[in-house]
Design a protein around this nucleic acid. Structure first.
Lengths: 225, 225
DNA sequence: GCCGACATGCTTCCATACAAGATCGGCATT
DNA sequence: AATGCCGATCTTGTATGGAAGCATGTCGGC
């Protein structure tokens, strides 16, 4: 396990426990299939069972924990079906976003995106895959903002967590160079206001995740259902 | 308020409270802006505060309640922005779905959909708007199943609840005849395997919700932010 | 040797008591 | 009369004890 101290940032203990556990789950410090209990976590963080229990409820609703009443609570294994359907949702939305952005092109849209790609190249050259990941997410979030639906991006954050766990497992595997090249293609199409090309490029970009998923399933079979 | 007795179907008390409260909220028995408290609801259902509190947490995560720590808990007012972004998500997904269904037409797909429309006409003639609503939802869910993404439909159920509250307010206003006509257009396009026409029809169908939303906001201004 | 009843130790679930922040009213002071 | 203090009384947050269900391993019967 990771730290035994809670960040003192959030208001309530329950919220701090939520943040700590979610981080442990996404970073695989708590592995899919691991069994945890209220008193276990409570003792580990030096708090009572009640806030831990409420944290469990929140994380269970986010699909990260599975509470089996009167039995136990386990870190939910990653569901390939769930991941694929989450990808379907994400692809549907991102395609719609890229159409809008390419359809109503603003002057600085391409500039902002180009600058983000430059940052990604810097992170890639430095071998900082964690920062690359963050910038990659920012790239897609920026597209949502340019389309005027940034709030919608927050709405699907819960579903994205399933994808994030898979992505964390692929940090060393995925080719950052290839992702950067695909981002460039998308921006180029947006700059030309070519919605069809932008959509095609976006679908191709997201399709690579399917290969990564299959690779990950065979690399870590125990983490999947 | 509505019933003071909990259905004895679900496993735990907390789950029963969740179901009861959610139903009261969607059917506007609990109105947006209403202030409730744990002990209030607990006394009303004859249970302790604890399961009620857990129900509050779940409903807050679903966007139906707003817990203000140490202050109170209120039934969340409907956010027009949130509704529009939920609609954006839904439209993105449904367009993708209708493309797939129209793209890979199965023989009985049109038959199943046609039968559903017939049921809707029957409900409309009988003036049973509640049943019409249920069938309408089934129509769209069936499309998701035909596209092979029924599970994704469940994933966005949480967001749909925002739309459901608005829809409940429009039960007497919306034109069932018009909705049926639009459904027929969609099915016709699917039967002809005309993906472009199906997409256009679906967008038009969903666009009507924007008008209903604006109408509802002016009819019930107190229910919105 | 095999199989089932049962005790034991786990878990989550619920109830209750207390703690701590927030609100609102009365009341003293200015 | 206006204003600021302060306490009664709400609220949600946390702690703890016990109840109920489930899994497991032991022991007795066959």
């Amino acid at each position: 396990m990771a730290a035994a101290a809670l960040e003192n940032t959030k208001e309530t203990i329950a919220m701090r426990v939520v943040d700590a556990l979610r981080d442990d789950i996404i970073t695989m410090a708590l592995k899919p299939g691991d069994v945890i209990s209220e008193s276990d976590i409570a003792g580990r963080y030096g708090v009572s069972r009640q806030p831990v229990r409420e944290a469990f409820i929140r994380l269970a609703q986010q699909g990260l924990l599975l509470i089996r009443p009167k039995r136990a609570t386990v870190v939910k294994k990653i569901s390939p079906l769930g991941v694929r359907q989450s990808r379907f949702i994400r692809e549907s939305i991102e395609v719609e976003i890229i159409r809008r952005v390419a359809g109503q092109p603003s002057d600085d849209a391409a500039d902002v995106l180009t600058k983000l790609i430059a940052d990604q190249e810097a992170a890639s050259d430095a071998g900082d895959s964690r920062r690359f990941h963050t910038l990659d997410e920012l790239f897609h979030r920026t597209l949502a903002r340019l389309a005027g639906v940034e709030y919608a991006w927050q709405l699907i954050d819960d579903h994205k967590m399933q994808l994030d766990r898979v992505r964390y497992l692929t940090l060393g595997v995925s080719s950052t160079q290839r992702a950067i090249a695909e981002h460039k293609q998308i921006v180029e199409a947006v700059a030309r206001a070519d919605a069809a090309a932008a959509e095609t490029a976006m679908r191709a970009h997201l399709a690579r995740a399917e290969l990564l998923l299959n690779q990950t399933i065979s690399d870590f079979p125990d983490y999947f259902e």
